[in-house]
Design a protein around this nucleic acid. Structure first.
Length: 188
DNA sequence: CGCACGATGCGCT
DNA sequence: GCGCATCGTGCGA
C-alpha cells in the first residue's frame, strides 16, 4: 500500500467536498513504535456560517485552531470525557472543519479485531489515542497522517443529517460509506 | 464568579 | 429508548 499524505491543497476544496472526499482516505497513526492504519467511513462538515459550528460566533480559546492552517488538526474535549478529531479546512482565518466520525480498522489491530472499535468520534479518538496534545498538528506528518486512500464511487456515498447537534439539524452534511460495518450507527 | 450544556457512549429497561 | 458520567468552555451576572 502506498501511503501518500493528502496535500495542503486537498483541504482548500469546498469543505463539503473535503468531507465527501475524506471517505476512503486512511488515518496512519504511529503509537508506541507501532503503526495503526484505519480507513475513514464517516465524516461531518462544519462551515463558518453554520450555527452548529463551534466558531460560527467568532474566535474563542477553544475554537482558535479552526482558524488555523488547512490540513491541521482540531481536537476538543466533549462531555468531559471524550475527544473529537477534526481536519481544519478552508483558507487560514475561515473556521471550517471536517469531523472524522468513524473509521474501519485495517492494519495493526491483530486478528480478532472488533470492526466497531472506531465507530463513533469518541471511540475513534480513544482507540487512536488522539487528544488535545495533537491539536494544531500538521496532518501530513507523523505521528498522525491523513493519506490518500480508496476512491469511493458516488453511489456508495450517503448524505445524512449530522448527529448530536441542536441547530441547523436539517443540513445533510454527514457523509457515510454505504454498507460499511464500521459506521457510528446503523444506516437509516 | 457561577452555571448550563455539549459535534458521546454505555449500561439498563 | 433513556439516564447519566464528567469537566472545560462561554456567556450572563
Amino acid at each position: 500500500m502506498q501511503l501518500k499524505p493528502l496535500p495542503c491543497d486537498f483541504y482548500l476544496q469546498p469543505t463539503l467536498d473535503v468531507a465527501r472526499n475524506l471517505l476512503g482516505a486512511f488515518i496512519v497513526r504511529e503509537l508506541d513504535g507501532k503503526r495503526l492504519i484505519t480507513r475513514i467511513v464517516e465524516t461531518e462538515a462544519y462551515l463558518a456560517k453554520d450555527p452548529a459550528c463551534h466558531a460560527s460566533r467568532g474566535k474563542t480559546r477553544r475554537n482558535a485552531p479552526m482558524f488555523g492552517s488547512p490540513g491541521t488538526a482540531y481536537v476538543y474535549l466533549i462531555y468531559g470525557m471524550y475527544h473529537c478529531f477534526n481536519a481544519v479546512c478552508a483558507e487560514e482565518g475561515v473556521p471550517e472543519a471536517v469531523l472524522i466520525r468513524a473509521a474501519e480498522p485495517l492494519e495493526g489491530f491483530g486478528k480478532q479485531v472488533d470492526l466497531r472499535l472506531l465507530a463513533g468520534p469518541g471511540k475513534l479518538c480513544k482507540t487512536l489515542a488522539l487528544d488535545a496534545a495533537l491539536c494544531g498538528h500538521d496532518l501530513r506528518l507523523p505521528p498522525v497522517q491523513l493519506v490518500k486512500g480508496d476512491l469511493v464511487p458516488a453511489h456508495k456515498v450517503l448524505a445524512r443529517p449530522r448527529v448530536g447537534i441542536s441547530q441547523a439539524t436539517d443540513r445533510l452534511w454527514r457523509y457515510c460509506i454505504a454498507g460499511s460495518p464500521a459506521l457510528s450507527r446503523r444506516e437509516e
